[in-house]
Design a protein around this nucleic acid. Structure first.
Length: 1160
RNA sequence: GGGAGGUUAGCUCAGCGGUAGAGCGUCUGCUUUACACGCAGCAGGUCGCCGGUUCGAUCCCGGCACCUCCCACCA
């Protein structure tokens, strides 16, 4: 086992590994098993003159990730690299260089000499760009390198052209084309950019023969010299009389006809348009329709021709425009001008304004090819990622126009067409040689077409020609069609669409299965990179500074969902940190692994491993699953992020920290250490394998140090998820443990305690596998969170401890005595408020009948659980605010003697409530509001105890803590007692006496048998008539008050209730009592009197019996009680005076609970 | 003129009908013997605006605003 350098320096090993892999032949498909399924990518050929830019770097990185990943899966990967001869681009560069060096033009040299220079130039550059691709780590098979201008590719180009000619799809025609005067060649529509530019719309008066004038509007006055007509719309009544007459063309004196044609928009300008068939595509068409003459006034050099007249000939287009305007002015022909936005056509390469000119060119009739190409994507033979590009592709294909394929250049594939002196066209049959004589007239003197093909006319054949097509080579048979094409959407039309056409047309099969379009690389701020802005980032410099691995990883992470990616130094530096992290993690592991035997978990019994070991293996397996699935979907960003997250957060921050005490512990048995060492090594090995497609160099370097097999990593098995490593229990335990550690650390930080200060904590959770597991992990937990004691039980009593809920379990932390600062208190208060609001939201959702009935049961259950968790947190957090006296989970003590409550009707230490006052309210939307209103009222009025009767629009008293009404019935009733509650807000309980008395009072008042389902409900015939509640509040002075209340359903027949989906409820009306409320004649006074009597009367019976007389529970009843967090099951064993239900649980223990009885 | 995409934390971006996420940055503690390219922790969001559908909308539908980009021969 080697050692790793303390400093991580990628430059020391990156190219070494690349060379080793290439020389080992790993990049050839032959490295895989002979029968392996092929995986093929053809590199989009970079320009031979170019230097690798970030766009290339992105594409090559993504391709390489796919190739390396598939290679590790055992596929026969063939990634074919190549270079494009780049017609215009190269020719221009060479010409510029020639001019600089010798002052000569290509015409001075002559064709052959110039081409020789081009060939030499391209030859000397070709290696550069390929080496730059190597620098990036691209695992291409360089033994199969192609060049778009080599013999094999030339053969394909010739074959395709001659075939198209034979099929009648290649034709030569005189058309209006895009001409770039600067490049001196025709351009295809795609090579022209339309840029909205502010220009002018000039009005010019043309005199009409026989008197009068007609005013035309134009944006290009200089072309008027070539006008051969003036046109109006046939239905334009203003000009009907003009049609057929002639006008005089100013500056030339020629007369031209006025024609009527529907292409004229009567609403634009004056409704009259000058027609210049030689210089405007629209006019060209109109000219054809009307048999107009072509007068070419602008030449191929962008200067005015003789036909423009002696005064203008030789002038540049722009100069001519100025002069024409001046001259028109002089003749008094100008009729005004206004500013106007014109979409100016500019040459994509040199930005020169493109001139529409008529010339003879070669075209390909592309419609039939497009149809087949669309069909291939419609059937899914080829699919796009992201899918939305299909739309753009379809749209373009639908409106496609014939492709002008000839270029007036020297550098490129020569067009295989020959002409005789009579102009007969000779294109050989596919496969035939050059013609010796004219096929039409037999003349022996033939001239070859001087033009060459558009560069894309060779590029579009790439997936075919790289394998030697049209020959049926073994490579072609094995590797065509290719698997995937990765490229930027900027060449979707130029290249991708055309390749699909070529493939489907000439072979019948689309050239690739998937097309992955990535976004444009921009600078860190999201701006387009440009030389003028000076924000161009050179990927090679980045590789030198941070390592190719970091560059690749950055690009992969940023590649996102096809949007632009903001790339820059800062980000690369950030991901280099990840490479460093991997490096350092291994530096940590190496000596520990070397210490002894490593038991590889692949062979070992998984169940025999420690929980922490099983956890990290389960996580590793999941990470492998995510990486594979993401790559399968071409989501490079997801895959890279999954790796980053797993390795850094889980492995380094989690696992490594957790095994330190194991591997370094003096008292840990060697067998245990060997297992953990094995797991540590396994996770590292697999992580490096997962990482290899993204970071092929550092992964090899580390693997070499760790396992001595750095080179073989490129062909190692790519990790897959392992079902046998799935372990939800271990995951839950470790996640819980980590959450507890975090919370403890956070409490330390919040309370200003040193991180080294040891604390005692308790974990509250029911007895079960999780609690037993946590018990086992106490040493680890203590180590990580620096604890001196950990108690685990269903209830932990640590006086004055801080309480919270973490990961669903109760956390009790003993914090050193110190006054809680008002800040801390405020923070908790804020948190509690937030939770309360949240809880309130959830409660109202749960109270919503339509939610309960329409939402899926799982969502309802989840919502309930959420509420319980939040409620528990509220209780625990707010408990921290009241210090030692806080009624956190111990229930509320009875009001102390001496309080106003305590002074009433004492009997045997029990306290009773006296009715004092009556308030009528209209409605209260929730218990909270209800309590608030009452408390505020009470505080304002006096400090006397009150029993408040509220006739609400809705029944408002439900569960003690739950708040909202449980039955939204109109005409419900609530009765409440307000008592001082010195302990302040918190969890308080309804003393059992109150419940008993209220139940008795009700029974007496209405003559019905009201029973208690303690502690929350009042029942009649086992149906819910109402509920009991208690809420504690405090005013600003800190005085506490509690509301003890009872809510009753008053109105509603049994049928009503059933119709509302409340078969478990009843009302006074349904019980035959039918009091009227809220309309003046209420029996409230009467009822209150009876209640008053009942409440005021001493309770003579011992409590249990008193309770039994009104209770709905019998001893031994099996109850399920929810206390806001968990359910408790047990046999009913009575009620304590404080109001707790005593439940006998399975284990024979007795639990005291307070909560809602949900089943009995 | 037609079409597409975007608008979510300070920045760059994921996400997506059921309690808002990451990385970076900011802030607060830490020379804890793998790592200061680090460790630990906190803070930070009416998910552009207005309607609609839905039990429930950041997410689906419609409209609006602003920003990109592509396509296009109206002088």
């Amino acid at each position: 086992m080697k050692e790793l350098d303390k400093t991580f320096d990628p430059s020391t090993f990156e190219m070494r590994w690349y060379k080793a892999q290439e020389e080992a032949g790993f990049f050839r498909p032959e490295a895989a098993a002979p029968d392996a399924e092929p995986f093929t990518i053809v590199i989009p050929p970079p320009n031979v003159t170019g230097r690798l830019h970030v766009g290339h770097a992105l594409g090559r990185t993504l391709e390489d990730v796919l190739c390396r990943w598939r290679r590790m899966q055992g596929r026969a990967v063939l990634w074919v690299p190549g270079v494009d001869h780049a017609g215009i681009a190269t020719q221009m560069v060479v010409e510029r260089d020639l001019k600089e060096r010798t002052g000569k033009t290509r015409h001075d040299l002559g064709r052959e000499a110039f081409l020789a220079i081009c060939r030499e130039w391209a030859g000397s550059r070709r290696g550069d760009i390929l080496n730059q691709i190597r620098r990036l780590g691209a695992s291409c098979d360089f033994t199969r390198e192609y060049y778009t201008l080599d013999e094999t590719r030339s053969k394909a180009v010739r074959h395709v052209f001659t075939t198209l000619y034979k099929q009648g799809l290649a034709y030569r025609a005189e058309r209006m084309v895009n001409w770039c005067p600067s490049c001196a060649t025709v351009l295809s529509d795609l090579e022209v950019n339309h840029v909205e530019t502010s220009g002018h719309l000039w009005s010019i008066a043309y005199p009409v023969e026989g008197g009068g004038e007609v005013v035309v509007a134009t944006t290009r006055p200089e072309t008027m010299l070539g006008d051969t007509a003036v046109a109006v719309h046939p239905d334009d009544e203003r000009y009907t009389a003009l049609v057929g007459r002639r006008v005089t063309l100013p500056l030339t004196g020629r007369t031209i006809p006025v024609i009527a044609d529907a292409f004229v928009d009567p609403k634009f300008g004056t409704g009259v348009v000058k027609v210049t068939p030689a210089h405007d595509p629209n006019d060209f068409e109109a000219g054809r329709r009307h048999g107009l003459e072509l007068v070419t006034v602008i030449g191929f050099d962008g200067k005015m021709t003789k036909a423009a007249g002696d005064a203008y000939a030789g002038l540049d287009r722009a100069e001519a425009r100025k002069k024409v305007l001046r001259d028109l002015d002089a003749q008094g022909r100008r009729r005004g001008e206004k500013s106007h936005l014109v979409p100016l056509a500019r040459c994509q390469r040199c930005d020169t304004v493109v001139e529409p000119l008529v010339s003879i060119q070669w075209f390909v009739k592309i419609g039939p090819l497009a149809e087949k190409a669309v069909a291939a994507t419609d059937t899914g033979e080829t699919s796009f990622t992201p899918e939305l590009w299909k739309k753009t592709y379809d749209e373009w294909m639908k409106n496609i126009r014939d492709w002008c394929v000839s270029r007036q250049l020297w550098w490129g594939h020569e067009i295989p067409a020959w002409y005789c002196a009579d102009g007969h066209v000779n294109v050989p049959e596919p496969g035939a040689g050059d013609p010796a004589s004219c096929g039409t007239c037999g003349k022996r003197e033939l001239t070859r077409d001087p033009d060459v093909f558009d560069t894309w006319f060779s590029s579009w054949l790439m997936p075919l020609s790289v394998f030697g097509w049209p020959d049926e080579t073994p490579d072609f048979k094995r590797f065509y069609p290719t698997s995937v094409l990765v490229t930027g959407f900027d060449i979707l039309f130029f290249w991708v669409a055309r390749m699909v056409m070529a493939g489907t047309w000439f072979d019948g099969r689309a050239p690739f299965k998937d097309v992955v379009l990535h976004g444009l690389v921009r600078d860190e701020k999201g701006q387009k990179m440009s030389k003028t802005k000076g924000n161009v980032v050179d990927p090679l410099e980045m590789c030198d500074e941070f390592g190719a691995d970091a560059v690749r990883f950055t690009l992969a992470v940023l590649s996102g969902t096809g949007r632009d990616l903001p790339f820059g130094k800062g980000r690369v530096a950030g991901y280099r940190a990840f490479a460093t992290k991997v490096w350092n993690a291994t530096r940590f592991a190496l000596p520990l692994i070397a210490e002894g035997e490593c038991a590889d978990p692949q062979a070992a019994d998984f169940r025999a491993l420690s929980t922490v070991d099983r956890w990290i293996l389960a996580r590793l397996s999941e990470a492998a699953g995510r990486v594979n699935a993401s790559l399968e979907a071409y989501r490079f960003d997801e895959a890279a992020q999954a790796l980053y997250q797993f390795f850094w957060s889980e492995f380094c921050d989690g696992y490594v920290e957790m095994i330190k005490p194991v591997l370094r512990g003096a008292d840990v048995p060697e067998a245990g250490k060997a297992k953990t060492r094995g797991v540590l090594k396994r996770v590292l090995l697999d992580s490096l394998a997962l990482l290899h497609p993204f970071m092929p160099f550092v992964s090899c370097e580390i693997r070499e140090a760790l396992n001595g097999d750095g080179l073989r990593l490129a062909l190692a098995r790519f990790p897959e998820p392992r079902p046998e490593w799935k372990d939800d229990a271990a995951v839950e335990a470790v996640e819980t443990l980590r959450a507890v550690v975090t919370r403890v650390r956070n409490l330390r930080a919040e309370n200003g305690l040193a991180q080294t200060e040891a604390l005692a904590i308790g974990l509250e959770l029911p007895e079960g596998p999780l609690s037993r597991e946590l018990q086992r992990q106490v040493p680890l937990l203590s180590h990580l969170a620096r604890l001196k004691a950990v108690k685990i039980s269903s209830k932990v009593d640590i006086a004055g401890a801080f309480r919270d809920v973490v990961a669903g379990i109760g956390l009790v932390v003993e914090l050193p005595k110190k006054e809680m600062s008002s800040e801390d208190e405020e923070k908790i208060r804020k948190e509690v408020e937030k939770l309360r609001a949240e809880a309130e939201k959830i409660r109202s959702r749960l109270a919503d009948e339509s939610f309960l009935s329409r939402a899926p049961a799982s969502v309802v259950a989840k919502t309930k659980q959420q509420l319980e968790e939040i409620s528990e947190r509220i209780v625990r957090l707010s408990g921290n605010l009241v210090g030692d006296a806080g009624p956190v989970s111990g229930g509320a003590p009875l009001p102390p003697a001496g309080s106003p409550l305590g002074s009433l009707a004492p009997l045997g230490g029990r306290r009773f409530v006296r009715i004092h006052n009556v308030i009528l309210l209209a409605t209260a939307p929730s218990t909270n509001d209800f309590a608030k209103i009452i408390v505020e009222h009470a505080l304002a009025e006096s400090e006397e105890i009150r029993l408040t009767v509220i006739a609400a629009g809705e029944q408002t008293a439900g569960r003690g803590r739950a708040g909202r009404a449980w039955v939204p019935l109109p005409g419900a009733l609530a009765l409440s007692a307000i008592v001082p509650w010195p302990e302040g807000p918190g969890r308080v309980r309804l003393p059992i006496e109150t419940g008993i008395l209220l139940a008795r009072g009700l029974s007496a008042a209405f003559g019905i048998d009201v029973r208690l389902k303690w502690p929350n409900d009042l029942l009649v015939d086992r149906r819910k008539l109402g509920g009991l509640l208690i809420e504690a509040r405090s005013n600003d002075d800190g005085e506490g008050w509690a509301v003890i209340g009872i809510g009753l359903n008053v109105r509603g027949t049994r049928a009503d209730l059933d119709a509302r989906g409340l078969p478990g409820a009843t009302s006074l009306e349904a019980c035959g009592v039918a009091p009227t409320l809220l309309d003046g004649e209420t029996p409230l006074d009467e009822m209150l009197a009876i209640l008053d009597e009942g409440v005021g009367e001493p309770c003579a019976d011992p409590l249990p019996e008193a309770f039994a007389s009104v209770s709905a529970h019998a001893p031994g009843d099996l109850l399920t009680v929810t206390d806001g967090d968990r359910s408790h099951k047990g046999a009913f064993a009575g009620v304590t005076p404080e109001g707790f239900l005593r439940l006998a649980t399975e284990g024979g223990d007795e639990t005291l609970v307070s909560g809602d009885v949900v089943h009995f």
